[in-house]
Computed example of a mutant assay.
Amino acid sequence: MTDTTTARKPPTSKNSEVHVKKRRLPDETGIFIVLVAVLLVFSILSPNFRTIDNGFTLLVNGTVIGFLALGQTFVLLTGGIDLSTGANIAMSGVLVALVMQAGVPWPAAMLIALIAATSLGVLNGLLIHYVRIPPFIATFSTQGVALAIPLIITGANSIQVRDIGFSWIGQGRIAGVPLPVLLLLVAAVIAGLWLRMTRQGVHVYALGGNKNAARLAGVNIARTTILVYAISGFCGGMGGMIVTSRLMVGFPATGTGNELFYSIAAAVVGGISLFGGVGTVLGAMIGAVLIAAVSNGMNVLSVQSYWQSLVIGVIILVGVSFDTLRRSRAGRPVFAKRPAVDTPSLPPSTTPSKS
Score class of each variant (00 low, 15 high):
353 S>Y: 12
22 K>M: 12
324 T>V: 15
343 T>R: 15
243 V>R: 07
197 M>E: 15
201 G>S: 08
44 I>G: 09
287 G>L: 02
138 A>D: 03
9 K>L: 14
304 Q>K: 15
26 P>Y: 07
124 N>D: 06
164 I>W: 10
297 G>P: 03
144 G>A: 12
354 K>S: 14
332 R>M: 15
102 A>S: 13
58 L>S: 01
342 D>H: 12
30 G>P: 09
333 P>N: 12
8 R>C: 01
276 G>C: 04
302 S>P: 12
353 S>T: 14
149 I>D: 06
254 T>C: 11
45 L>H: 05
336 A>L: 06
39 L>Q: 10
142 T>S: 11
84 S>I: 05
229 Y>Q: 11
223 R>Q: 11
134 P>S: 01
209 G>P: 00
247 L>P: 09
79 G>S: 08
179 L>E: 03
101 Q>T: 10
239 G>I: 09
318 V>N: 06
305 S>P: 08
72 Q>M: 08
99 V>C: 05
97 A>Y: 02
312 I>R: 13
329 R>F: 10
285 M>Y: 04
154 T>Q: 06
297 G>V: 03
2 T>D: 15
205 Y>S: 00
311 V>K: 03
138 A>Q: 07
327 R>K: 00
344 P>T: 13
1 M>F: 15
308 Q>D: 08
5 T>H: 11
278 V>S: 08
245 S>W: 01
149 I>H: 04
11 P>G: 13
252 P>S: 05
53 D>V: 10
207 L>G: 00
177 V>H: 06
149 I>M: 09
238 M>T: 08
211 K>Y: 09
